[in-house]
């Protein structure tokens, strides 16, 4: 993107729904048509819309995988628009725009991925691309939730699991699992990538203070490409950054409240 000149790095396109899996009452997996030639990378997102007769802003979703002519998105049903995505006819045509946002930087060496719920989407994309050198710590509410998502997890040399109710894997939060993992000496990592609820990401960043850690934010946004200024996030140097452009992936110590400014 260079001053006024056009580049073909992004597109808006009409996209047929290729496949829709209802993983749980809450989680959907959508596979949607995508044009070739777009460079989707882990951490980037797309704006998804289902045209209708009412005004609606597009909804941002992290790309979970991008393969020959299609994209996979993990959707958590939370409101009116996501219910429409769940309930629309199988031959619906969506409007998609992307790729948006700045991806995870991927340094050499072992990568620690920590995520929960719908926040697993960008981490699964990373895991798919770097499966030989990632360790995934994933949190779920129940064994049933884990099992429904297990179908879409790539085979990994190491994935550790925690459930809130203790019905599978380690009982408790994924942050507690991380503490155990660190205490057991599993910490020879080059970097960590985190996505999930804000308190979880904050706690993980605190636990991993000595490790370069990137978190993917989920700010409410209107446009998704840097013009509305609705999704700004405060940085530790007091400047504001746009979650949709400079983010959604940020190095945790550069965010206000995460880094050294927080004592």
């Amino acid at each position: 993107m260079q001053n006024g000149r056009i580049t073909a790095e992004r597109q808006v396109w009409s996209s047929r729904l290729l496949e829709r899996l209802l993983l749980t009452d809450e989680y959907l997996l959508l596979r949607l048509e995508a044009p070739g030639g777009l460079d989707f990378r882990p951490g980037m997102f797309v704006n998804l819309q289902l045209p209708g007769d009412r005004f609606s802003l597009p909804r941002p979703f992290s790309v979970m995988s991008a393969t020959d002519g299609s994209l996979q998105l993990l959707v958590k049903v939370v409101g009116r628009e996501t219910r429409r995505f769940r309930d629309c006819p199988a031959d619906s045509v969506f409007s998609l725009a992307g790729p948006l946002g700045t991806p995870f930087p991927v340094p050499a060496g072992a990568l620690l991925l920590v995520g929960g719920g719908v926040g697993l989407a960008p981490l699964l994309f990373l895991a798919q691309q770097y499966r030989d050198r990632v360790t995934l710590l994933a949190g779920f509410r129940t064994a049933a939730e884990y099992e429904s998502l297990a179908a879409v997890l790539p085979p990994l040399s190491q994935a550790l699991l925690a459930t809130d109710d203790g019905s599978a894997g380690s009982p408790g939060l994924v942050t507690e699992l991380l503490e155990q993992h660190l205490a057991a000496g599993g910490c020879d990592y080059a970097a960590a990538m985190v996505c999930g609820p804000e308190p979880m990401m904050y706690r993980v960043a605190q636990l991993l203070r000595s490790l370069p850690t990137w978190v993917s934010l989920e700010n409410y946004m209107a446009c998704g490409y840097g013009v509305c200024m609705g999704c700004v996030v405060a940085m530790s140097d007091r400047n504001l950054s746009r979650a949709c452009c400079e983010g959604p992936v940020f190095r945790s110590d550069l965010l206000q409240g995460y880094g050294s400014d927080n004592g």
Partner: peptide
């Protein structure tokens, strides 16, 4: 300008 110029 630049943000929109990334689309057209």
């Amino acid at each position: 300008g630049p943000e929109v110029a990334s689309w057209y």
